[in-house]
Design a protein around this nucleic acid. Structure first.
Lengths: 215, 215
DNA sequence: TGCAAAACTGCAACCAGTGAAAAGAAACAA
DNA sequence: TTGTTTCTTTTCACTGGTTGCAGTTTTGCA
């Protein structure tokens, strides 16, 4: 089944077997084919039958790799969340809450920037897709929300005595909520990556120093 | 069509015509019937056919009142957003950004608390429903996100010289993001309304005074 | 080579959602 | 009241995502 991102090795040996390699190839074919089709003819206009045919599997098989049509687009979400949570889990000595949160944000951006995972260079296409398709936007927000919950729990776990669970949630929610909304607004006009970057930074500064520093 | 919440009057006279009254009754029947069915047999297990039958209309007619199955549950969203945006629009003289945001939050809570709109007393049922059904949760997040965008624009409009559009977005996103996530975490255990209220307050204080005041 | 597990296929069924044409009901004018 | 116009609902047919199931193929391994 495609539910595990990390390859399950055949045995104690390090080499993935034929079965695993085939599965990875099919998975990648589904992802790349789907994104290409979404780009060419639009998300709604692309049917699962076409996606499956593109990867030379049956429609039914699609669903043993992804739980839904939307999910192909978010193939790397689990991985990204894992990195964030892991980053929180290995708290540096003497690190402050804010320091840790910034480290998480930075790592996440780095990861996003250097994406090679699945020979996949159309990150921009994906962003455009998610921004324009309501169904994908809803799914993205749901996944992001879920990630925030996980991160809040991890943060509470990293500072068990200093932060209550609800305070940890408030912190994560405020930081990511601020960044998310300001980036979204900024994307309504065409902007360069650098612009977006600095807007995100600015939003995190606002969250950290507090809204009272504004008007 | 059911797209307008406010009744379109027949003429210059104040009385809504028969047509309008019937539509309101049908709308209410759909809402109440749907929520009752969702409660009794679960959201996924309830079909549109059943909902429509409960209100004695055809399945097709359901879709001239609501755009989707999910949307019945969020029948009052437009109204709530309108209040929030209107509250922002009539900025008080000498009001600060933070002061205004707090006023919006308070008004919104008031409105939620005093809900009588459609002889509808099962607000709690609805909350439980949204919290447990993934499809509804995704829709809720999408609607909330959209509301935040509108509020951010309104805020920028209210303080055009003091707040850039992206800063306004950062403010709204941080405040609502913090409240949302902490309330959500708090709801994982059973809590009283008062508890939730004070947790929300605490989250807004954190966002206002800044994350740096934490760890 | 043979067996068990894993993966894939085809098929049937369900249900949300949409388009179009026809029927029904209400509003309006004469 | 009657005829006309406009809005609403119904009926019907159809698409497409999603799932369960039963059977077949492929792979891993002894």
């Amino acid at each position: 089944m495609g539910s595990e991102t990390v390859a399950a090795e055949t045995e104690a040996s390090g080499a993935p077997g034929l079965r695993e390699r085939k599965k990875q190839r099919t998975r990648q074919a589904l992802i790349e084919g789907a994104l290409r089709l979404f780009d060419e003819k639009g998300y709604e206009e692309t049917t699962l039958a076409e996606i499956a045919a593109g990867a030379e599997v049956s429609t039914r098989t699609f669903f043993s790799y992804f739980a839904s049509k939307e999910d192909v687009v978010f193939f790397d979400t689990k991985e990204r969340l894992q990195l964030a949570v892991a980053t929180i889990a290995d708290r540096q000595p003497d690190e402050t809450v804010v320091g840790m949160l910034l480290r998480v944000i930075n790592k996440s951006f780095e990861q996003a920037a250097s994406y090679q995972d699945i020979t996949f260079d159309n990150a921009a296409l994906r962003v455009r897709l998610i921004l324009t398709e309501p169904a994908l936007q809803a799914r993205a927000l749901h996944l992001l929300f879920d990630s925030q919950l996980h991160m809040a729990r991890a943060l509470h776990g990293a500072f068990p005595d200093r932060l209550s669970d609800t305070d940890a949630a408030a912190a994560v929610g405020a930081l990511i909520g601020g960044i998310k909304l300001s980036v979204m607004v900024s994307l309504e006009e065409e902007r360069s990556i650098e612009d977006v970057w600095s807007i995100a930074r600015r939003a995190s500064e606002i969250a950290i120093s507090g809204l009272h520093t504004l008007g």
